[in-house]
């Protein structure tokens, strides 16, 4: 039995939740214009970032937990002081920002801008200046290539070498992070890629899609390594450290929610074994689809942000860490007897 901590800091549905590098802070953004930051240990709210005038689609915190970046539907991205909640800089953009992410060193961040009217969507990289004014112009712009659907999500691979993007038609593409050169693409999904999260070492990543599946692909070859199948559109997928699991979240479309009861809506976090691809458990609790799932970097807890306006923060119990497949147990047993013999 886990007792989740329910964080009710938002009046509208959550769009993203995220832990910082040490996992002591949890950030959440929703459609209600205000970003929140919480202590993950007890769910106490540290503060809010006030300034956006539209839905905030995405948030990220740099590795040192000094700066926070948010991307909003009000055609802007903002950089904040994580400690005081002051807005450091605002970038005005020609289209809404769907996704922001710092690179591993916190020197720069990428943003995915939406496709509106004549604006083609793009992925833009901005440098972060810690001691002076921020650059207005991006250091790199990757405009959506001809024949590609707009990008919906993007992230940095290991070493910040590549940028991997997920597209609205289910395509995954890979770019050189320095030059912006297009390197490869593959199409594992048939519908919008809703989320893309990297493994802790950044060598492979998991994508979730509205086509009810999630896949693990490797960065180097864009090979599909694993597939997780569900019975509902998926909004988010995360890889858990410590244990070889993945957590998927989603559910029926927001527009269909009122016509289904919470039992039939499939509003559960689904746990799959990363290697064996079996579904091994579910956690319910949300009254609406799960919009985002974030896992603590130490693998001790996970948070889910729902369409119902709640963040549910779960700290795992001992039984979670003890769980092993029979084959794993046998392998461990044989390994230990072998060492004894030696």
């Amino acid at each position: 039995m886990m007792r989740p901590i329910m964080l009710k800091g938002h009046e509208r549905s959550l769009t993203q939740v995220k832990f910082n590098r040490e996992g002591d802070l949890l950030l959440s953004v929703a459609k209600d214009r205000v970003a929140s930051v919480w202590y993950s240990s007890n769910g106490e709210r540290l503060g809010t970032f006030i300034g956006h005038i539209g839905t905030i689609w995405s948030i990220d915190i740099d590795p040192e937990s000094e700066l926070v970046v948010t991307g909003s539907a009000d055609f802007s991205a903002k950089l904040w002081n994580a400690r005081t909640g002051e807005c450091v800089h605002t970038w005005s953009l020609p289209s809404p920002v769907r996704r922001v992410e710092f690179n591993a060193t916190g020197e720069k961040f990428l943003m995915v801008t939406d496709q509106v009217m004549k604006q083609l969507g793009s992925i833009e990289v901005y440098p972060v200046n810690r001691s002076g004014p921020q650059a207005e112009e991006p250091m790199l712009t990757i405009t959506t290539r001809e024949g590609f659907a707009k990008a919906t999500v993007a992230g940095w691979s290991y070493g910040g070498l590549y940028i991997i993007a997920g597209h609205a038609d289910g395509t995954i593409s890979k770019y050189d992070a320095k030059t912006g050169e297009f390197l490869a693409s593959t199409k594992p999904h048939t519908e919008t890629v809703s989320d893309l999260q990297f493994s802790p070492d950044g060598t492979y990543f998991i994508t979730s899609s509205r086509d009810k599946t999630a896949h693990i692909l490797d960065v180097d070859g864009l090979q599909m390594l694993k597939t997780y199948e569900t019975d509902a559109p998926m909004n988010s997928a995360a890889i858990t450290p410590v244990k070889d699991f993945v957590i998927l979240g989603g559910g029926q479309d927001a527009k269909d929610v009122t016509t289904t009861s919470s039992k039939q809506g499939k509003f559960e976090a689904r746990f799959f074994h990363k290697v064996f691809q079996d579904e091994i458990g579910r956690v319910n609790g949300h009254f609406g689809p799960l919009n985002y799932i974030a896992v603590h970097p130490q693998g001790t807890s996970y948070a889910s942000g729902g369409e119902d306006g709640y963040v549910r923060l779960h700290h795992f119990e001992k039984s979670y860490f003890d769980f092993l497949y029979d084959v794993e147990r046998t392998a461990q047993a044989t390994a230990s007897t072998q060492t004894e013999v030696n």
Partner: peptide, 18 residues
């Protein structure tokens, strides 16, 4: 934690099994 923003939910069960 402020009870207005932070509440403890009812216990949920996560039984892992193949």
């Amino acid at each position: 934690p402020d009870f207005r923003t932070t509440q403890v939910g009812t216990a949920v069960e996560l039984v892992l099994g193949t």
